[in-house]
Design a protein around this nucleic acid. Sequence first.
DNA 1: ACAATCTCCACTGGAGAACCGGAGTATACT
DNA 2: AGTATACTCCGGTTCTCCAGTGGAGATTGT
Lengths: 145, 145
Amino acid sequence: MELSCKSEYALLSLLELAAHRSNGEPVQIRQIALRQNIPDRYLEQLLANLRRHGLVRSQRGAKGGYLLAREPWRITLLEIVDCIEGLSPQPPGSTQKVETIERAVIYEAWQEANQAARAILKNYTLQDLYERRESQQQLDIMYYI
Amino acid sequence: MELSCKSEYALLSLLELAAHRSNGEPVQIRQIALRQNIPDRYLEQLLANLRRHGLVRSQRGAKGGYLLAREPWRITLLEIVDCIEGLSPQPPGSTQKVETIERAVIYEAWQEANQAARAILKNYTLQDLYERRESQQQLDIMYYI
DNA sequence: ACAATCTCCACTGGAGAACCGGAGTATACT
DNA sequence: AGTATACTCCGGTTCTCCAGTGGAGATTGT
C-alpha cells in the first residue's frame, strides 16, 4: 500500500471538491491544481479516471468543472485508491506466481497483511479526512496566536 | 505493502535455509536458486544484503554458503522485508512531502493503514511460515493418494 | 596450487510513473 | 450566432526504479 503521487493527487482533489461542495458550483481543474500544487495537465487525466469510475461528475464548457458524485461520507479511501491504482490485471498470475507451495504460503501471509491495510482504508471516508483537516486547521490557528 | 520479487526471493531463500538448518551445513546460493527457480546472480545480492543486516551468516570458500544467523522463530517477516526493501531514505521527504495540512492528513491515514499491515507481518515468524509449508505439503500428499 | 564459493561494484534493458501538447467538443454568456 | 471557457481524448516524452547481468577479486577447503 504505497502512497503514489497519483493517489495523493486524487485524494487532494476530492478533498478540495468536498470543501467546495456547500455551494453547488463545479470546481475547475485549474483551481484545484493551483491550490494543491499539482501539474494541471496530469490532474486532468486522474479526474477523468475518477469520473469514469463514478466518483465525480463533470460539467463541460464555460463555468464547468468537477463535482463529487456522492456525499463525502459515502466515499471510502479504499474506493479511491482502487480507482486510481487500478484493480490490477494478472492473467498469468493465478497459474504462474503461486506454482510452488512455498510461494503460496508466502503469498497467503501477504494477502493477510494487505487485507489489514485495506480494512483501515475502507473505514475512512472522505468526510473523515475533511473533518480532520478542519480541526487541524483550527489547531494551527490557535498555535499561531 | 506490495510483494516485490526481491522480497519474495528473500523469503524463499530464508525458508530454504530454515529447512536445511537441522544439519549445521551451509547452503549454497546455487542450490537455493535452483530449487526455488531464482536467477542466482541476483539472489547473490539479496543474500549479501541480508547478511549485512545480520539475518544470515555466510561462509566463504569451498564448502561455503549461507546459514540463518538466528533461530527461525526469532525472525519476523517484517524484519526481512525491511532489510530488503530498505528503510527508505527521504532527505527531502520530511520538509517536502507534508508541507500542507491536507497532505499531512492524508499521509496520516496512510501511515495507519501501513501500521496495520506491518503489525501482521511482525507477528509472522519464519518458523510459522515453515510450519505452514510442512502441513500444506502433508495435505498435498493426502490428496494425491 | 587449485577449485569452489562468496564479495563488491558497475552496467543494461524494460516497464511504468509522471508529465506535456494538440486537436476536438460541449456549454454559458453576450 | 459567435466567442471564450472549460472538459475530453489521444498521443508522445522524460525519468526513475526494478530485475537481471558481468567481471574482477577475496577467502577457504582439499
